[in-house]
Amino acid sequence: MNWAEAGFEVLGTRVLWTDLVGNVAALATVLLAIRKSIWTWPVQLTASVLLLVASVNAHITGNALKQLMFGTLAVYGWWRWTRGTQDGRELAVRPATARERLGLVGVMLAGTAVIGVIFFVTGLSWGAHAPLPEGYLLVAADAYIFVGSAVATWAQGRALVDFWLIWIAVDLVGVPLAFSSGLVVSGAVYGVFSVLVLVGFFNWLQEYRSRTVLVLKEAT
């Protein structure tokens, strides 16, 4: 047995180390992001690699593609945050502008439509194999989560407070979808993730407001 297949049994269920450690690392990235730690990116990259291996090993192509996307965006975010913290500077977070928000929403809508068609035609989404018309809704939800995750991670790389809101919008679909599909553990993990996301949003927003007030005081 190679390392990608290494694991252990829990109540008759095979648990792969790559899947377990990858998900723990993915959850850790949220905690690190709340603290604006640059370590959130290498940890996310590690999680993506481990979950990619787990997905390929389980022959889940759609999830493997998602991990490739996360890994690529983790490199981008790492580069952006490194630039933003050069010379000992603290990472400056800010809300997105009206134009940026319009762009984020537009990409999510258009991206969901395009990716949804690709997922359905290629069968990459598990929903493509479900009876119609339910299959259409499942594929759309799968595509929405895929695109929303990409947009949120990209916005995080640019230190936009709004990235937390995008994750909340993704979880509003992801959590009930997981529970309705019988994935109770995944639904519970997404639920914890949602709580951490709310904490992160308020922390980043409070920091931005405090910094803005300080700048205004210094200007006067």
Rank of each mutant, 00 (worst) to 15 (best):
A26Q: 11
L172P: 01
V107M: 10
N23S: 14
L11C: 06
L65M: 15
K66G: 07
A74C: 04
A141T: 05
V199P: 01
L73I: 10
I168Q: 11
M1H: 13
P95F: 15
L205H: 14
A178L: 12
T82R: 14
M108G: 09
V151K: 03
A143T: 05
A28S: 15
I115L: 09
V24A: 14
G7S: 08
A141L: 04
S210W: 11
W81N: 07
L216I: 00
V21Y: 09
R209F: 06
R158N: 14
L104D: 02
W39E: 04
P133W: 03
A113R: 05
A128V: 08
A6R: 13
D162S: 11
I60A: 13
A25L: 15
E134Q: 13
L160A: 02
N63P: 00
A98Q: 06
L183G: 05
A178T: 06
N57W: 01
T212C: 00
F201T: 08
V56Q: 14
N2K: 07
G191W: 01
W167Y: 14
R35H: 11
A140M: 07
W78V: 05
F163T: 11
S125Y: 08
D162G: 10
Q156P: 00
V173T: 13
T122I: 01
Q44D: 08
V24H: 02
V175S: 04
P131M: 08
F201H: 12
L102G: 15
A28K: 06
A47G: 13
L109M: 12
P133I: 03
T40I: 03
A54E: 07
H59C: 01
R209H: 13
A219I: 05
P133M: 06
W78C: 02
D142I: 05
G191P: 06
V189E: 09
G127I: 05
A26M: 04
G182H: 03
L50M: 15
L27N: 03
I168A: 10
F202I: 11
V105I: 14
I145G: 02
A6V: 09
E5T: 14
G157S: 12
Q86A: 15
L137P: 00
L11Y: 04
V189S: 01
A54R: 02
S180V: 08
A47R: 07
Y144E: 00
A152L: 06
P176K: 10
F120A: 14
F146I: 06
L31H: 07
V56M: 15
L68K: 02
L214W: 03
G200Q: 10
T13N: 13
W167I: 03
G88M: 11
V192Y: 09
K66R: 08
Q156K: 13
A47N: 12
R211N: 12
L196D: 00
I38G: 02
S186M: 08
L45D: 00
V56H: 09
M1E: 12
L102F: 11
T153K: 10
A130C: 00
A152H: 10
G62H: 03
V56L: 15
S48I: 00
F70D: 01
G187V: 04
V185W: 09
I60R: 10
E218W: 08
G84Q: 13
M108A: 01
A26T: 03
A150N: 05
A188K: 04
A150C: 07
L216G: 15
F120Y: 13
W204Q: 10
R83I: 06
A92M: 07
F163G: 04
